[in-house]
């Protein structure tokens, strides 16, 4: 269809080819070298089942926590004028660029046994957070929430305050307006943000290992298990990777239609 414009120039085609190769070769290699015959046996092993269960639990919990506290934060950033709003907005984006292992160290500093908050918590209630399943969810939420908040805030700002004003003239309180007007109109952004947060949580490794450790059945998620296995059994690590790859692609395929529809208005977090 672009024939009339002339041939695509090599100066663009060659780098494009290199980029595509770079993205495809590792994935294809993984498919080629994986010992497929061992897949059923591996999937059934207790260690893998534990890791899969924990990965699912942690990623879904992360999405739920984002929905419950990330949505209100996005609303406040989009709708409430206050001093320091731009600072707050900038802070939300920090975990996006923070190396995950640094995020883990920061979490240890705050919530670790002798951390700023953690020591107080331990003295007062005896509760210790690190190396527990909740620690996994906290680490995942820390790194995934910015994706969610930015996506939802973008959607809230795109839908504008116009409908909020109309709802107010019709006698609605802000809470009613949020429930019945603002949130439904921002739903594509909520879905996109939830998918981004879920995907970020699924692959999370650095912050989790640093803050929550790598204990089977308690804090060992699939990425942690793969990393541990890779040290002495590369074949198994490859097979486990295939499982995680399959899960990611499966979910992406399921959500693809939704993605494409929502992409135009809610790309803020991407």
């Amino acid at each position: 269809m672009t024939r009339g414009l002339g041939r695509p120039p090599l100066v663009l085609l060659v780098p494009a080819g290199i980029a595509l190769t770079l993205l495809l070769v590792p994935l294809v290699s993984l498919l080629v070298v994986t010992p497929w015959a061992r897949l059923p046996e591996l999937v059934a092993s207790e260690e893998v089942l534990d890791a899969l269960r924990l990965t699912g639990l942690a990623s879904l919990s992360t999405v739920v926590v984002c929905l419950l506290i990330g949505t209100p934060l996005a609303w406040v950033l989009a709708r409430v004028e206050f001093r320091g709003r731009s600072v707050a907005r900038a802070l939300v984006t920090v975990p996006l660029v923070l190396p995950p292992v640094v995020a883990g160290v920061a979490l240890v500093s705050a919530l670790g046994r002798s951390g700023v908050v953690g020591s107080v918590l331990r003295d007062a209630t005896g509760v210790v957070i690190p190396y527990t399943t909740p620690a996994v969810v906290i680490a995942h939420t820390f790194v995934a929430m910015p994706f969610y908040v930015l996506s939802v805030e973008g959607a809230l700002r795109a839908s504008g305050e116009r409908y909020d004003a109309v709802a107010a003239t019709l006698g609605a309180t802000r809470w009613t307006t949020f429930r019945r007007v603002t949130l439904p109109l921002a739903m594509p952004g909520v879905v996109a943000g939830a998918v981004l947060a879920w995907a970020r949580s699924l692959g999370e490794f650095g912050a989790t290992v640093t803050f929550a450790g790598n204990y089977q059945g308690i804090t060992q998620t699939m990425p942690s298990l793969i990393y541990q296995t890779l040290q002495n059994d590369r074949e198994t690590a490859q097979t486990l990777s295939i499982i995680l790859l399959g899960v990611s692609i499966g979910v992406l395929a399921l959500l693809r239609n939704r993605w494409l529809n929502a992409g135009g208005t809610t790309g803020a977090g991407a």
């Binding site: 116009r162 409908y163 004003a165 109309v166 709802a167 107010a168 003239t169 019709l170 006698g171 609605a172 309180t173 007007v181 439904p184 109109l185």
Partner: peptide, 20 residues
Amino acid sequence: LPVRDRRVGWVVQGQALFPH
């Protein structure tokens, strides 16, 4: 009086119906 307690009916220019 906040907006919601004023008994107004507001017909703005263009589309202001809740689209959903």
